[in-house]
Write a protein that binds this DNA or RNA. Structure first.
Lengths: 341, 341
DNA sequence: TGTTACAATGTGAACGTTCACATTTGAGAT
DNA sequence: ATCTCAAATGTGAACGTTCACATTGTAACA
């Protein structure tokens, strides 16, 4: 380890011939300093290569200027989620703009994952936290509700009635997608569902959107047209086989995520049918592959980056003690029509 | 802001009837404490909901227990890079295991991006940094070389001769991919190259691997078979059109990344040809879409997670002042044979 | 029974900054 | 020339922990 003695605010002060407090004012851009003094101090800072100690600042100011980003994904899941980076990007943009740093804390179900999570919770390491809600997030979130620091969930905070959350309008997105299919004349619309109801709020919301659309069009909801999947491509393939095996197969399939939708298209093609000529397919999420796939996939795009940005904005307000009126912010999802429909 | 007074080590000490140093020993798992004392203190910590102040710890210990992750991507690029999350995941795993926190700092070319980067550089915010080298990383890395804290580059550190770097064996991966095609009997192998030579080391390495493979098989390197792309899918399509327009078109195409390979397949199909029957295609990267695409894409997989993990391991050694012998660690890339070849 | 040695615990100082307040400086009004 | 007031700058204390060293307690030994 380099044991070179650290350059402190006092070293700078001595060299510049001012008091340390003046140096402090300079590095904090306080306006209570003459331009002349500021100039001189700045030069010395440059010359001595002085870097203020964040730790000392934090200790003194009682703030860390760090926002924790808690991602309760297992590593594999994390890699596969295209939203996540977009969300992070939005969060990061907002944090950067406000001189906040972003501390990443993935917290899987593994021991080491929970360790990171615990460390985050048990140490005053950040001024607040953004939690990304996922299918995997069975543990941990409930713990968050108990501690003092403000936090906000991207997704649905099912553990804290008074919590803050930001999510996209899954219901409206699914409704639009379904209406889009109905408008194209489809009456029997198969739905590839997510895992068991209640586990993931977004799944329920999307399903609800589907139902509402049917209802508003005067179509009946038919149980046989709803097949369960688990958000993986193979499950989409499997579900599609079931749908195609029906006495009257659907003429359109709405998969609750893109990966399953791609699986659906593949299975349809395997059966000698063409998309969109024979069967139309719509997905949800707008993953990068959706645009690249042939046929390109009609899907519902979530405003991932905006979600991240909004979550960060609200959290920063909470940290600053400013009032935040809405506990739940819902951003609109957007239907993107491509070749598959 | 909640202004509740903070519970400190001294509050715990008073309550438990011991000195604050003893409390410190307990929270640091020092073995110089009786089980009895430890128990009592632990109970009080629990009861008072004491959380040690990271800032105070850092200030005292002169370490932050934070590793900075600098990602010089622009936001859009960041979202599209499937490696990145895998790398982060590996880094995070290693950090977690060693009680280190991971601070994210994306640093694009934008003003706000550079701001984050500067903040990182000008404040003692982390004990060390991991820099992800990218096509975008034209600025910034050179600055890193000038400062004291240890850092390591995932990719090729072209700014610092004495720097540390970890990357996958692009050359060997490309060589294997090319040999794979040669073994299948292909003599004319088109190559969809990356942007201008010299800009990205990995591109050069991959191209070199291609050349070496040709040479080792006694095949000549033909300039007309090498077409420039820019790592986007459309550029792959465009390049493929050029290759197919040759008097003697190649029977195999090796694209230096998957996105261009997918573009190549699409163009080949548009021309009424089939993959792999008429033309064989190989990519590089193994993005998620590579496995989903039809035909699934033969490609070279980078050990992204291992890269992250290794980088973190080395950085932690550097921070601890332990000797690190190799300045450049190269992890093997792996050819994944799928339908497209 | 006194000495030794080491384990357990306690005390003062230090880490580098910001905060709250005190002091100095200088320009304008009298 | 003196006074006033605000702007500029300076000083002591505090933030909560760890480090280095000091003290106490206790078991093992001669």
């Amino acid at each position: 380890m380099i044991t070179k003695k650290r350059v402190t605010i006092k070293d700078v002060a001595a060299e510049a011939g001012v008091s340390y407090q003046t140096v402090s004012r300079v590095i904090n851009n306080s306006n209570r300093v003459t331009d002349e003094t500021r100039q001189k101090v700045t030069e010395v800072i440059e010359a001595l290569n002085f870097r203020p100690s964040l730790a000392a600042r934090n200790l003194s100011s009682q703030l860390t200027n760090i926002i924790g980003l808690i991602i309760p994904y297992s590593a594999d899941y994390l890699i596969r989620d295209p939203h996540l980076l977009a969300q992070i990007s939005g969060i990061d943009a907002e944090c950067s703009a406000n001189d906040y740093n972003l501390l990443l804390s993935t917290a899987g179900n593994s021991a080491s994952g929970m360790k990171a999570f615990n460390r985050f919770l048990t140490q005053k390491i950040a001024d607040g936290a953004i939690v990304v809600e996922t299918a995997d997030s069975t543990t941990g979130n409930d713990l968050l509700a108990k501690q003092d620091d403000p936090y906000i969930v991207i997704g649905y905070d099912i553990y804290n009635k008074n919590g803050y959350m930001v999510h996209s309008d899954d219901r409206q997105g699914a409704k639009e997608a379904t209406l889009h299919l109905i408008e194209r004349g489809h009456q029997r619309i198969g739905l590839i569902n997510g895992p068991a109801s209640g586990a993931i709020r977004s799944t329920d919301e999307r399903l609800l959107g589907y139902k509402i659309a049917l209802e508003s069009a005067g179509l009946s909801f038919e149980t046989e047209l709803v097949v369960r999947g688990d958000y993986t491509r193979p499950s989409g393939q499997h579900a599609t086989k079931q749908l195609l095996a029906l006495d009257t197969p659907p003429t359109a399939i709405f998969a609750l995520n893109d990966r399953m939708a791609i699986g659906a298209i593949q299975t349809i093609q395997t059966h000698g049918l063409t998309v969109p000529q024979d069967i139309v397919v719509v997905g949800f999420d707008d993953i990068p592959a959706a645009a690249d796939f042939i046929p390109s996939l009609t899907t519902v795009s979530q405003p991932s980056r905006a979600l991240g940005r909004t979550a960060a904005q609200i959290l920063l307000k909470l940290i600053a003690g400013k009032p935040v009126k809405d506990h739940e912010v819902i951003l609109p999802a957007k239907l993107i029509i491509r070749q598959s429909s």
